[in-house]
Design a protein around this nucleic acid. Structure first.
Lengths: 199, 199
DNA sequence: CTCCATTCCTAGGGTTCCTAGGATACAACT
DNA sequence: AGTTGTATCCTAGGAACCCTAGGAATGGAG
């Protein structure tokens, strides 16, 4: 009776693969145990709970995505950087639907997750450098870009776009054009609003 | 022994309220039955499955949101309309987190859901009328706006924005300014790209 | 070879989803 | 009122999942 050689890492990795194959919701202790030819109870030597395991899958996905974005961004600036970032994001979501679904669950804000979030934020600020926005505009722009990327990937993943004939790729490309326009012509702060802000 | 008076409608409604109170994930047949002082098995006379019930909650939410947006949009045009639409969307998400979470599950593309999706699309096109975009630009813009709204509400709901000091309300307001800029200066189709599209 | 920690298993309790079949309330009809 | 019928609700129970507790085997260190 050889041992299966379970490890927290290997479990998380396998759970991520399983999520991509059968869907994040369907990732279950029994299913994961089956994949290692092991009883489900055996997993609990390495993992506190299924919930925690899933959170760690989310953290893994965040980290992987940050890596991809980092390499995509290397040596690019301006709109090139914007497009590279956005495509890295979207491609990851499409190649790894289960991991991507993991990213968008109510995440326990643990150390790994918070760190990954910081990396994403830093990356986005790097991509924005060429647009020369100062605070707080930069933060606002980061949030808008995250929202747009996240939202698009999501709607695409859940089929929320309807089945319009217009190609999703083409729309995506135009959306990036439009965001580029918005960034290059970032609206000046409305003086009235600014005054209110510092009241 | 008085009867509880269960109905598909009342179950869906109660499930929606329950979702807002305890979270969409936590909506369970037993919890719902408890609320009606009934055994969980009794629900299955009115509902095919929990999964289907949840999908119907999603459809309900879609419909409610469409109503809100419709009234918010009445009598407005241009950026006013954009802001009204966006705020209706975001406010709904914040007032009804459970229903909103329901909207973003892998929805069975049933009749009700598809209908609601059409209403949303129509509404967005109405809001865009003043920006005078022609197809396929209009479709692209609809998709970008949906993505941005959806994404922002999502990130806000799951705490995905980090805890930066900058106010989420302020960022949201600036994001709308930026989207308004993008819509007013919608980029012309790149001739090379357009040629590729018709190849 | 013995000891030890780790790994994995068996056993079992609790929850949830769902089905099947029986009992009961309510309404309509005679 | 009494009867009949239908929809409503219950009891009973099977299957899957999550997790705990305690026992056995495995593989490495001394």
């Amino acid at each position: 009776m050889a041992r299966a050689g379970l490890t927290a890492e290997r479990l998380i990795q396998a759970a991520a693969e399983l999520a991509d194959e059968i869907g994040f919701e369907q990732v279950t202790a029994s299913a994961l145990a089956r994949r290692f030819d092991v009883k489900d109870a055996s997993l609990y030597a390495h993992v506190k709970s299924v919930r925690e395991l899933k959170a760690q899958v989310a953290a893994l996905a965040l980290a992987e995505l940050a890596d991809r974005v980092a390499t995509a961004l290397a040596g690019r600036a301006g709109k090139d950087a914007l497009v590279a970032f956005a495509n890295a994001y979207r491609d990851y979501a499409r190649e790894h639907p289960g991991r991507y679904a993991a990213m968008r669950m109510d995440l326990a804000p643990d150390a790994a997750g918070a760190d990954a979030a910081r990396r994403h934020s830093a990356m986005t600020r790097a991509l924005l450098r060429d647009y020369r926005l100062s605070e707080p505009d930069q933060t606002d722009a980061v949030r808008l870009l995250h929202s747009a990327f996240h939202g698009y990937a999501n709607l695409e993943a859940t089929g929320g776009m309807g089945h319009h004939p217009r190609s999703l790729d083409a729309s995506w490309s135009r959306a990036l054009d439009a965001l580029d326009v918005a960034l290059r012509n970032w609206p000046a702060t409305d003086p009235a609003e600014s005054a209110r802000e510092t009241d």
